[in-house]
């Protein structure tokens, strides 16, 4: 039994090990992407600064940080198959005796670590461009909400990761279309109420909608007691409805993602799609 657990832990660690060393070897690109994430976020946050509107600035900063976190998490998992096609290693990963659940769990652990590092660096950078303070924010509550939403985004990422298996040419493109759609409908930088009426029901299907709504409340966005010098973060109890929705979404999307991935993998083995490089 211990042997099986040790083996599973090593197999999970393999993906973190690989991700860490690839990050190290591609460090100049990692810096470039982080720089781009920071400048993009700062450019958005400065819209609030230019309007001399603290509430708007806070809304944009929270949106930028959460989108960096969630999109990195999603992207790292969703693009994992596409990356392996580009490297030419996909067949070797798929013929290793790793249960697909362990494979995707390993990818998710690395993606989570990567998301935390990128979001932290963007946060530190944003503090240089804005006078936003974190004092008074319910940061513990934010972490709980992020952990809950991580499950849902892992599920979405796993489902999207199947797309490059399905179509070597179009799959990677489709993952970005899906990511862009989430950005549009989830109210990252604006309330979902400003979306056209026909899109608004779709926003209810995005886990990011609930993550953003809950985190904004926990940080104190919109609370009359919030001032530029001190935030009035709400207690965790006030976001229980969003937490429940996120956990239910995670509980549904993770198994659904694994099921979809498994079906697509089997189809690819029937059609010979694993061989083709992107």
């Amino acid at each position: 039994m211990d042997g099986a657990i040790d083996r599973t832990l090593r197999q999970t660690w393999a993906f973190v090990f690989r991700g860490y060393h690839l990050t190290r070897r591609y460090i100049s690109w990692v810096i470039v992407f982080n720089f781009y994430a920071l400048t993009g976020s700062a450019a958005v946050a400065l819209i609030g600064v230019a309007a001399h509107d603290h509430r708007l600035t806070l809304t944009l900063v929270v949106g930028a940080l959460l989108w960096n976190f969630l999109s990195t998490l999603y992207n790292e998992i969703a693009m994992s198959v596409a990356y392996e096609r580009w490297e030419g290693t996909l067949e070797y990963t798929f013929m290793a005796p790793v249960p697909r659940f362990v494979h995707l769990a390993g990818l998710s652990v690395f993606a989570l670590c990567n998301s935390i590092v990128i979001t932290t660096s963007v946060l530190l950078g944003l503090m240089l461009f804005t006078d936003i303070t974190l004092a008074g924010a319910n940061l513990g509550g934010v972490i709980v909400v992020l952990l809950a939403s991580t499950l849902a985004f892992v599920g979405l990422g796993v489902m999207a990761a199947a797309l490059p298996v399905l179509s070597p040419e179009r799959g990677a493109e489709a993952t970005h279309i899906f990511q862009g759609s989430l950005l549009l409908v989830s109210g990252v930088y604006y309330p979902v109420e400003v979306l056209p009426a026909w899109i608004q029901p779709i926003s209810a299907l995005s886990p990011a909608t609930y993550t953003l709504a809950a985190c904004r409340r926990l940080v104190g966005v919109g609370d009359p007691a919030t001032t530029p010098h001190r935030l009035a973060g709400a207690p965790l109890a006030t976001v229980v409805p969003e937490l429940v929705v996120l956990l239910v979404m995670g509980a549904a999307l993770v198994p659904l993602g694994l099921w979809v991935f498994g079906r697509v993998e089997r189809w690819a083995k029937h059609t010979g799609r694993l061989k083709r490089t992107g």
Binding site: D6, T8, R10, Q11, A14, R18, A96, P97
Partner: peptide
């Protein structure tokens, strides 16, 4: 981009 050692250790971990 990875060294031979890194590639081989990755495979070893992948096989548990």
């Amino acid at each position: 981009k990875l060294s031979a050692r890194e590639n081989l250790l990755y495979t070893a971990l992948l096989y548990g």
